[in-house]
Amino acid sequence: NQESVVAAVLIPINTALTVGMMTTRVVSPTGAPAEDIPRLISMQVNQVVPMGTTLMPDMVKGYAP
């Protein structure tokens, strides 16, 4: 099972992602793949992402898996 990126903390809208904001988990439906964490760092979210929420590609500005 592939791990997806999950918010480790509450991420406010327009916040640039840091490694400490993200964790990985096997979830369904799958979100952004765990191996993309290095690409996701410094990208901004376009909505509030509550802690424990799977990071879906459409939540991150300019990100395409």
Rank of each mutant, 00 (worst) to 15 (best):
P65H: 10
P29D: 00
P38C: 12
P57K: 05
G31Q: 01
N14S: 06
S42Y: 08
M59C: 05
D58R: 14
P50R: 10
M21N: 07
L55R: 02
P38E: 10
N1R: 11
M43G: 00
P33Y: 06
V48L: 12
A64Q: 15
V49G: 01
G31K: 01
P12L: 09
S28A: 11
L10G: 05
Y63R: 02
L10M: 13
Y63I: 03
M21A: 05
A7Q: 01
V19W: 15
D36S: 05
P29I: 05
G20Q: 15
M51N: 05
I41N: 00
T30V: 15
M59F: 06
V49L: 03
P29H: 04
M59L: 08
G20T: 14
S42L: 08
I11T: 04
V49Q: 00
T53E: 11
T23N: 08
V49D: 02
N14M: 08
M56K: 01
E3I: 10
M43L: 14
Q44I: 15
K61N: 13
L40K: 01
L55Q: 00
G31V: 02
I13V: 13
V26K: 13
T30S: 14
A8W: 08
T15W: 08
A16T: 11
N46Y: 08
P50F: 10
A64P: 10
I13E: 13
I41P: 07
M51L: 10
E3A: 14
T18E: 12
V49Y: 03
V49C: 05
R25M: 10
I11H: 01
P12Q: 10
M43P: 03
N46H: 06
A32Q: 00
V6A: 03
P29S: 01
S4R: 05
L55E: 02
M43K: 14
A8T: 11
V27T: 11
V9R: 06
Q47K: 02
I37L: 11
V48Q: 13
M56C: 07
P50E: 11
T24K: 13
G20S: 14
G31H: 04
I13F: 11
V60A: 01
Q47C: 14
I11N: 03
P65I: 12
L10E: 12
G52S: 04
P38I: 09
T54H: 01
Q2Y: 13
M56G: 00
M59D: 00
I37R: 01
Q2V: 14
P29E: 03
T30H: 15
A34E: 02
T30A: 15
V49I: 14
M56R: 07
P65Y: 09
R25Y: 07
P57W: 15
V9F: 06
A32C: 15
A32P: 02
V45F: 02
M21G: 06
V27D: 06
I13Y: 12
V5S: 03
V19T: 10
T23C: 10
V45T: 11
R25K: 12
M21V: 02
M21D: 07
P65M: 11
N14C: 11
A32H: 01
A8H: 07
L10R: 12
I41Q: 02
P38Y: 11
A34S: 07
T23M: 14
I41G: 01
M59W: 04
A7F: 08
G62P: 05
E3H: 12
E35Y: 15
E35W: 15
V5Y: 00
E35S: 15
S4V: 07
N46L: 10
I11P: 03
M21Q: 03
E3T: 08
V26Y: 14
K61G: 06
D36Y: 03
L17H: 02
S28E: 11
A64G: 11
Q44W: 09
G31T: 01
T24L: 10
T15P: 00
G62W: 07
Q2M: 12
M56H: 07
V49K: 01
T53I: 08
N1A: 14
T54R: 01
S28F: 15
V26G: 04
R25V: 08
S28D: 12
V6R: 00
P50M: 10
